[in-house]
């Protein structure tokens, strides 16, 4: 009975996937790479949390074939207070993308000061979002997961959902330097996992964290309110961009390339939301991204 439950909730990763993950990791005799990734731990964590991906958030992936086989940079929209979005993309990169890979997420710089979680994240391949780390990992053939919105994205309030915030330009410069493709990713659903209605800035400063959100359930319901809402999540991978040019180009030129990526993600997001009839009630709430009734290019609302 317990074994059956385990099979449903946390089935082990397919042998083909596990083999491939081992091949790609550059680990030493002790099984660790310089950043602290340990494939065995990463696999255990992924397998143990597979139910979150498959049953809780019921993730649906489109366009996984767009992810190129070599090293690349996955660039999704950011939102939802806690990095569930990063986790779900990482999971998709293992289960749906061919060849499967452990993507190396670029996390906030204050993150290593968090005990326990920072250690767990490190074992699963997440690294501090520093350009040196990013370049070194790409040169070792690893794929990167980067959220150019940063905390401005993950901490956004509900009124700004699915509206891309300011993008940093560093990721395009690194892509130019390492000649690595950028895969735009649109995540629909993740920005509602924690619908933040306000931010407690002063408390955040005292606690030394980037933001403290207030949701209809948190902190009113205490820890119970901190549970993520079981939103259905769609992940759409777009066609990769391969930019050419001087990595030291003036900021304006690079910003133009960033805008191209941003526009693509935004339009993928709009199309993604339009495909989701279950989210149409959102239109009645103030703020947020308005769903176009008919998308340009004839991409209509799905499910109707």
């Amino acid at each position: 009975m317990l074994a059956r439950l385990q099979d449903v909730l946390a089935p082990p990763l397919p042998a083909r996937v596990r083999e491939r993950l081992r091949e790609d990791a550059h680990v030493n005799s002790a099984g660790f790479d310089l950043w602290g990734l340990n494939i065995e731990t990463a696999e255990q964590v992924l397998a143990a949390s597979r139910w979150l991906y498959e049953l809780y958030f019921r993730v649906e992936v489109r366009g996984a074939h767009h992810v190129p086989p070599g090293p690349c940079m996955l660039v999704p929209n950011h939102g939802g207070q806690l990095p569930f979005d990063g986790f779900l993309v990482a999971m998709a990169a293992v289960l749906e993308v061919d060849p499967p890979r452990v993507v190396r997420g670029m996390v906030e710089r204050w993150f290593p000061s968090l005990p326990f979680i920072s250690t767990l994240f490190t074992r699963c391949g997440q690294v501090v979002g520093d350009p040196h780390n990013c370049i070194a990992l790409l040169e070792r053939g690893q794929s990167i997961l980067v959220f150019p919105e940063g905390v401005g994205g993950s901490g956004k309030t509900y009124w700004k959902r699915y509206t891309l915030q300011r993008f940093g330009t560093g990721f395009v410069r690194i892509a130019l330097q390492t000649r690595c493709p950028i895969v735009p990713v649109a995540l629909v659903g993740t920005e509602e996992i924690y619908p933040s209605i306000a931010k407690l800035d002063r408390l955040a400063r005292v606690l030394g964290v980037p933001y403290v959100p207030v949701t209809p359930f948190f902190p009113a319901l205490g820890l119970l309110g901190a549970l993520p809402l079981p939103v259905k999540v769609d992940i759409q991978f777009g066609e990769p961009f391969l930019f050419e040019g001087d990595p030291d180009a003036p900021e304006g030129e690079v910003a133009a390339m960033v805008d191209v990526v941003k526009q693509r993600i935004q339009s993928m997001l709009d199309a993604g939301i339009a495909r989701r009839p279950d989210l149409r009630w959102l239109n009645r709430l103030p703020g947020g991204r308005r769903l176009p009734l008919q998308l340009p290019g004839g991409a209509g609302r799905g499910g109707s």
Binding site: L34, W35, R109, W110, F111, P112, S113, V127, V128, D130, P131, H132, N133, A136
Partner: peptide, 14 residues
Amino acid sequence: TFHVYGAHQHNHVG
């Protein structure tokens, strides 16, 4: 010694 680089949460790897 490598101690001169300091132990800091912002340190990149390598």
